[in-house]
Computed example of a mutant assay.
Amino acid sequence: MSNEQPIGFMDSGVGGLTVVKQALKQLPRETVIFIGDQARLPYGPRPSEQVRAFSWQMTHFLLKQNIKMLVIACNTATAAALPDLRAKLDIPVIGVISPGSRAAIKASKNHRIGVIATEGTIRSNAYRDAILAKDPGATVISQACPKFVPLVESNEYQSPVAKRVVAEGLQSFKHSGIDTLVLGCTHYPLLRPLIQNVVGPDVTLIDSGAETVNGVSFMLDYLDIANTSAQQAQPDQYYTTGSADQFATIAKNWLRLPDFTATHIDLGRN
Rank of each mutant, 00 (worst) to 15 (best):
I91R: 02
R192S: 15
A126N: 00
G215E: 15
P136H: 07
A130I: 04
E30G: 08
P42D: 11
T261M: 13
E119R: 00
A244W: 04
Y239G: 11
I94R: 04
V93G: 01
D11N: 06
F9G: 07
I97Y: 03
A233D: 06
V20C: 10
N214K: 13
L194P: 08
Q26S: 14
V51E: 12
C185L: 11
M1L: 11
R128V: 02
D129W: 03
K147F: 14
G169H: 12
V93K: 00
T228V: 15
N125H: 09
L170M: 10
E30P: 00
L191I: 09
P193I: 02
V32K: 04
P193Y: 10
A39Y: 06
N155A: 12
A244R: 02
I116Y: 02
A126Q: 04
N197S: 14
E49F: 14
D37A: 09
T261K: 15
R256H: 15
P47V: 05
L89R: 04
Q158D: 12
A251S: 13
D266G: 05
L220S: 13
A73Q: 05
P6M: 02
D202F: 07
L190C: 04
C74A: 08
F148T: 06
S208Y: 05
Y239V: 12
F148I: 01
Q158P: 00
T240S: 15
N110L: 02
L24S: 10
A103D: 01
A251Q: 10
M69A: 09
K106I: 05
A248R: 06
A251R: 11
T261H: 13
G36Q: 13
R86K: 12
Y222I: 03
L24R: 08
L89C: 02
V149I: 11
G100Y: 03
S2E: 09
A244P: 01
H264W: 12
K21L: 01
G13H: 00
V20F: 03
S48N: 12
I116N: 03
I94L: 12
L220E: 08
G200S: 06
F173P: 01
A81F: 03
E156T: 11
P47F: 08
Q26G: 07
F34L: 12
D135C: 14
V213K: 00
F34Y: 15
S2C: 02
L85R: 08
D90V: 00
Y43V: 05
L194S: 07
D221E: 15
S12L: 05
N75E: 08
V149P: 04
K88E: 09
W56P: 06
S142I: 02
D90S: 11
L190S: 07
T139N: 03
I206L: 01
S172D: 10
Q234K: 14
L17W: 02
E153Q: 09
G44F: 14
F247R: 12
P28C: 08
S101G: 09
L132E: 02
I265C: 10
P146G: 08
F54N: 10
A73R: 07
A244D: 06
I94S: 01
V198D: 08
A80M: 01
P6L: 05
A80I: 01
Q237M: 14
G114T: 04
K25L: 14
Q171N: 14
L191S: 00
P193A: 13
T263S: 09
K88H: 12
L190K: 07
F247S: 15
V166D: 11
R86A: 09
P189M: 15
N197H: 15
L17T: 03
G95M: 11
N75C: 10
N253E: 15
V14Y: 10
Q231T: 14
G200N: 10
L170N: 07
